[in-house]
Design a protein around this nucleic acid. Structure first.
Lengths: 244, 244
DNA sequence: CTAAAACGTCAAAAAAGCTTCAAAAAACGA
DNA sequence: TCGTTTTTTGAAGCTTTTTTGACGTTTTAG
């Protein structure tokens, strides 16, 4: 197992020291942050494989830190705290934590949980790159930072959902996404609603991009889902897809 | 509606029922397995997004089941058991579990943990997929991600059934499939209908691939079924096959 | 607080694919 | 070769999926 970088954010020095020693014994590189307000710079320089953090601090809001970490990274977060009520646990998970362990903790159990999290985040999966913010396909560009789409050098304003939908489809041209995949990625996996919603948004995106740009268009893969495809004049055996 | 499929393996019917009701209320599709020895078939047919399981059973070894699941899938596993010693927990994680919750459990916490696991396995990551999505045979290629067949460098769009049919046949060139095998694989296990349906679909695939590509074609094995075979000019010992 | 924009739901209509059927053709066995 | 069995094929009807417009609700902006 390659050396893993673990970052501990906790004002309690004793607890951190103790844990650090154990983790280093398990062949990890451990960075302790005892002043939570300085987490950001350390996080960026270390780029940890996993974060262990408390949520109760003197001057700053631990929940906010958890949320901020999740906002800028997919790195696994294990909350380790004396705060043991169910409400806190649920909040932690909702803010993006991957596990929640109560102090005082059993070293062996915590180590096992940490390993499981790293395994899940690396061995079984490949991280999604959330870094890309702009895609450019011929005369179609989508910029998620400026939140605008450019179609034939015309800025077109799209509402959030349509924006994300088009961005996702354009990030993997020709890839077919099922409605559920689109719901997962754009609406979020906790969304529960009619998958016909996707159809309606696809329609609205089509209305905006189709008239202007002939080069790429949203195709329907009947019985499967949708796809952004280079428009072809001569679609020889075109059953299964339809032009719009 | 990205409905999540959750599988519960537990001999304790009360606990399972209770949990099932709650998860269904959270909009999941829940399958209960109260006879753990039958997990395999269910697992394959359901293809769950997450497994909740006990490890203490009357006649079978729960740890072994956990290990077996992990062996054939990356699906998140949450162990839910009265067995609460640290040794058991560590063993569980080492066998591939992603979380370990002690009975009696708090519904809200367990639900939050389940959601966190599903989120980790889907939203932050893309599963390392070992499943083949594309086959390439000389000038014949079938791509299930783009949902297109390429025949002599011509993209040909096929409807779902024809696509899956050709993909299956092309995945095992020369292998003869009976109509029932094809029905099982393409139409699904529980399909009830005339096996002549296969013939019609074979015919339609032929219309599309035969004209264009001479290198591979769909052969009829008289009295048996169908096969994708390299086209031969001189098939002298041709008993049992016919050219198309 | 109001108005506009965005979003979600629904049902009718349209489109595409699927299945069945029966006649015709082909392959087989005696 | 003849009769039987199996496969091919075209067309019609059926089912499923998708499109679309309208409308009610929620969120955002001023």
């Amino acid at each position: 197992m390659p050396l893993r970088k673990i970052m501990i954010i906790d004002e309690d020095k004793n607890s951190s020291e103790f844990l650090k020693a154990h983790l280093e014994h398990e062949n990890s590189a451990v960075e302790m942050i005892t002043n939570p307000s300085k987490w950001q710079e350390k996080f960026e320089s270390i780029k940890p494989d996993l974060v262990i953090m408390d949520v109760v601090f003197q001057f700053v809001d631990g929940w906010q830190i958890c949320k901020d970490i999740r906002n800028q990274s997919n790195c696994p977060i294990v909350i380790l705290s004396y705060k043991s009520d169910v409400f806190a646990k649920v909040l932690g998970f909702e803010l993006g934590a991957d596990d929640y362990v109560i102090k005082p903790f059993d070293t062996k159990e915590l180590t096992a949980r940490i390993k499981a999290q790293i395994r899940r985040a690396t061995k079984y999966n490949v991280p999604k790159d959330s870094t890309k913010t702009r895609v450019c396909l011929d005369n179609l560009a989508i910029d998620m930072v400026r939140y605008e789409a450019i179609i034939k050098s015309q800025k077109v304003a799209l509402p959030p959902k349509e924006m994300q939908l088009l961005f996702l489809l354009a990030s993997n041209p020709d890839k077919v996404y099922t409605r559920n995949q689109l719901l997962d990625e754009v609406w979020g996996f906790e969304y529960y609603g009619d998958s016909r919603t996707v159809d309606v948004h696809i329609k609205r995106v089509r209305e905006k991009i189709n008239g202007a740009s002939q080069l790429w268009s949203l195709k329907t893969i009947w019985g499967v889902g949708y796809q952004l495809q280079k428009t072809q004049e001569s679609d020889n055996a075109g059953s299964g897809t339809s032009e719009l």
